[in-house]
Every structure is written in structure tokens, then in C-alpha cells.
Nucleic acid binder design. Structure first.
Length: 220
DNA sequence: AGTAAGATCCAC
DNA sequence: TGGATCTTACTT
């Protein structure tokens, strides 16, 4: 399994294209000298309003550029770190060209290195260590708002933390399905924008977003 | 100004 | 199933 550093150009494409290519790769962070390597096992693509072939009503960028989602509109390769439900710092890899909103949410991973630190940060163990975007963010050590916008291509340090994205060879068994917890039509099979490594135990359980199950029923 | 909901997770 | 806890968007 040979990994290589991601380049800016690797991410200069629409999220839907980039997302599956992140599977099997790693997010490597160093927090106060402590390194953790997370193998990415589950991701979701998010576009912006009118971005790409399909508009994305489930994205933070659906209403246009705001202070919160500004990172999503910037240079690819930075990390969009947002606060979920006032509690969890979740991590996205920004993609698409500068000026176009796009990101890939890192939803789950397995800890390759730094297990002790990961356990200390998440309070969980085994396959649950980085299962779900909240735990993934917790284990990575990246925090909202101080690490929002950190550059995962250069690995430059920001507030005592650095982050690097590494890519693997394409994963053979990739599964797709609706995004987790996304409301309404955007959370249905009409947007199969979630990608995961088939059979990996760290992949998070599926759950419908508010009104998404009803919207799906209408499609049938 | 008030309120409802959110790319979540945990304990009851 | 509800609470934690903060931000955004929409309503009065």
C-alpha cells in the first residue's frame, strides 16, 4: 500500500469526482507534537448552489457565500472545519477551483498511528474510534474555529496543529448511497453522494435526515 | 427579538 | 428519545 502526498491539482475537481478518490487515503495531523494518522473509510460530497451538473440543496454553501462557509469557496486542499450542532468539529477537504464552493466531508476512518492519543481524545476504542464525522474530527485534533482553513497540501502549522492529506491507489470496492442525516430531497437516493469502503467496520450507520424518508417515498 | 433546525453523539 | 450547545435562516 503506497501512499503519496495529495497535490493541489488532485483536488481541483468537483467533489463528486474527488470524494471516492479520498477513500483509502490518510489524514495525518500533528497536535502539539503528537501525530495521528487516520485512514479514510467513508466520505460525502457537497457542492454549492448551482455548482456542478447538479445543484446541491444539502450543502452549507447552498445559499451562497457566508462567513461560515467561506472556506468552501477558497483554494482546494484546505480543510473546512465547521461546528455541528454546537458541539462537534467536522472536517471537509475543500475541492473545486478557487471561487467555486465544494467540499468532501470525512465521515469515518480507522486509526493507523497514534492510537493512544485517539483513545484519549474520543473516549472510544476499536472500530468506534473515528466512526462518524464528530468522532473523526475529535480524533484528528482539528477544532472549530481555530483550524478552519488549515492547508492540508503544504502541511503548514496553524495554532500548534498541522495537517496533511495523503492519497492511496483507487479502492476496488466502493459503495455509494444517500448522505447521512441530510434533510429532505437532498438526503434521498436522488443524491447518492456518500461513498464508503465496502465492508469496512469503521463506516458509520445510515440514518435518514428530517423528511428525507418521506421525500424518498414520493420518488417511488 | 424569537424560534426552529441543523452534514452529531451520548446517555437514559 | 431527549439533551448538549452554538450558528444560521426565517418569522414577527
Amino acid at each position: 500500500m503506497t501512499l503519496r502526498r495529495a497535490t493541489r491539482g488532485d483536488l481541483d475537481a468537483l467533489p463528486l469526482e474527488v470524494a471516492p478518490r479520498l477513500l483509502g487515503g490518510e489524514l495525518r495531523t500533528v497536535v502539539a507534537g503528537v501525530g495521528v494518522r487516520l485512514r479514510i473509510t467513508e466520505v460525502e460530497a457537497y457542492h454549492g448552489q448551482g455548482t456542478g451538473e447538479l445543484a446541491d440543496p444539502g450543502s452549507h454553501a447552498r445559499m451562497g457565500r457566508t462567513a461560515r462557509n467561506a472556506t468552501m469557496w477558497g483554494e482546494p486542499g484546505h480543510l473546512y472545519v465547521y461546528l455541528s450542532h454546537g458541539i462537534h468539529s467536522c472536517v471537509n477537504v475543500v475541492c473545486a477551483p478557487d471561487g467555486i464552493a465544494g467540499g468532501v466531508l470525512l465521515r469515518a476512518g480507522s486509526v493507523v498511528e497514534g492510537t493512544d492519543a485517539a483513545i484519549a481524545r474520543s473516549g472510544r476504542a476499536g472500530r468506534d474510534l473515528a466512526r462518524g464525522p464528530g468522532r473523526f474530527g475529535q480524533v484528528s485534533g482539528l477544532r472549530h474555529p481555530v483550524h478552519d482553513g488549515i492547508d492540508a497540501i503544504t502541511g503548514a502549522e496553524l495554532h500548534d496543529v498541522s495537517a496533511e492529506l495523503w492519497l492511496a491507489q483507487p479502492v476496488e470496492r466502493v459503495a455509494t448511497g444517500p448522505r447521512v442525516g441530510v434533510a429532505g430531497h437532498a438526503g434521498t437516493h436522488a443524491f447518492p453522494w456518500r461513498f464508503w469502503i465496502e465492508g469496512d467496520p469503521s463506516v458509520s450507520p445510515f440514518r435518514w435526515g428530517r423528511g428525507a424518508a418521506d421525500a424518498q417515498a414520493m420518488l417511488d
